[in-house]
Computed example of a mutant assay.
Amino acid sequence: MTASVFIDGAVGTTGLEIADRLSGRDEFTLITLPEDRRKDDAARAEALNAADFVILCLPDDAAKAAVAMIDNPRTRVIDASSAHRVADGWTYGFPEVVGRETVAAAMRVSNPGCYPTGFIALVAPLVKAGLLPASWPYTVTAVSGYSGGGKALIARFEDDTDIAFRDYGLSLGHKHVPEMTKLAGLVHAPVFAPAVIPAHRGMVVEVPLPLAAIPGAAAPAALLACLKQAYAGSEVVTVHEGTPDELLLRRSTAPSDRLDLHVFGAKDGSQARLVAVLDNLGKGASGAAVQNLNLMASLPETAGLAL
């Protein structure tokens, strides 16, 4: 049976990539609005209530308003904004962390943020297993392609090719921090240092660990083994062994819905670097939404994904 899907905010970067992943799939029928009715609330409300599944690719306030327009108990929602990531009544859409069955059964799913996807994937299993303490004040540094910043940032980077590096979030309190703290099971909010580089897509998220100073922290080999066990059998998440000379983000990298995790440890075990590499538009946004949609529709988890 074909399920209907309405992407509210379909002309944005995330919406376009979701539509691309759903194109040619006969399990879904897309509900679309003509350009002159795309911002018409009456037309949107009709589409929101007609769809079996709604995917919101909107700013936070607009996403909340869209949810309020749904007046039936049948329509299921995936929200790609940050509006509902720690909200009561919403399931966090990271099936590898919260459980595939949990996502599959949910009526309201909030897509993880791109940076939190890397941080939570690395830290949550280790804290849960007791290999890292929940009470440690963690730091997360990250760089992303500019496409995650929306149309304005995309235009800025493409118009001003002299920008080599954009550090931001300098006032701290970034909107991604609450979901990082909650989903990783932490006592203290991590210090989050994000940056943007002149590449359209791609992301590296890193958690440096001074293991010798962290009470009760396990050795790098144990951290690696734990992550390998946590993601065993996943077609999306790969935990790598070995230490390459370098990790690269390339401007020419094709879209990907993978998530690659690494544990790099000092020879004496005193320090480690946890590193996640992903596509901010893939597992960090559109790919995650389609993965969640597949589960909610009782379809193969990786259908339509680029792996």
Rank of each mutant, 00 (worst) to 15 (best):
M1K: 11
A3H: 14
G12N: 03
T13D: 03
T14P: 00
A19M: 09
D20S: 07
R21G: 06
L22H: 05
E27P: 04
L30V: 12
L30T: 13
I31K: 11
D36K: 12
D36T: 14
D36Q: 14
R37K: 15
K39G: 09
D40C: 14
E46G: 11
A50S: 15
V54A: 03
L56R: 07
L56T: 04
C57W: 02
D60V: 13
D61F: 08
I70F: 06
N72W: 07
N72H: 09
P73W: 03
T75S: 12
A80I: 00
S82N: 14
A83N: 13
R85K: 15
G89Q: 11
T91P: 06
G93K: 05
F94E: 05
P95Y: 00
V98N: 01
G99H: 00
M107Q: 14
S110D: 09
P112A: 08
G113E: 05
C114P: 01
A124K: 00
A124V: 01
P125C: 01
V127D: 00
K128R: 15
L131Y: 02
A134K: 10
W136F: 15
P137M: 03
T139S: 14
V140T: 14
T141N: 09
T141I: 13
V143D: 03
S144Y: 04
Y146I: 03
G148L: 08
G149T: 01
A152C: 02
R156A: 15
D160L: 07
D160M: 07
D162W: 07
I163F: 11
G173C: 11
M180N: 07
K182L: 12
A195V: 04
V196A: 13
I197A: 11
I197P: 05
H200G: 06
M203H: 07
V204N: 08
V204F: 14
V205F: 10
I214S: 04
A217K: 12
P220Q: 11
L224S: 02
C226P: 06
C226E: 15
K228L: 00
A230S: 12
Y231T: 00
G233I: 00
E235T: 03
V236W: 04
V239I: 07
G242C: 09
T243V: 14
D245T: 14
T253S: 09
S256H: 10
D257M: 10
D257T: 11
H262R: 06
V263K: 10
K267Y: 08
D268R: 11
G269S: 12
A272C: 10
R273L: 13
V277R: 12
L281F: 02
K283R: 11
K283M: 12
K283C: 10
S286W: 01
V290P: 04
V290C: 03
V290T: 05
N294R: 04
N294P: 03
L295Y: 00
A297C: 06
L299M: 08
E301T: 02
A303W: 11
L307M: 13
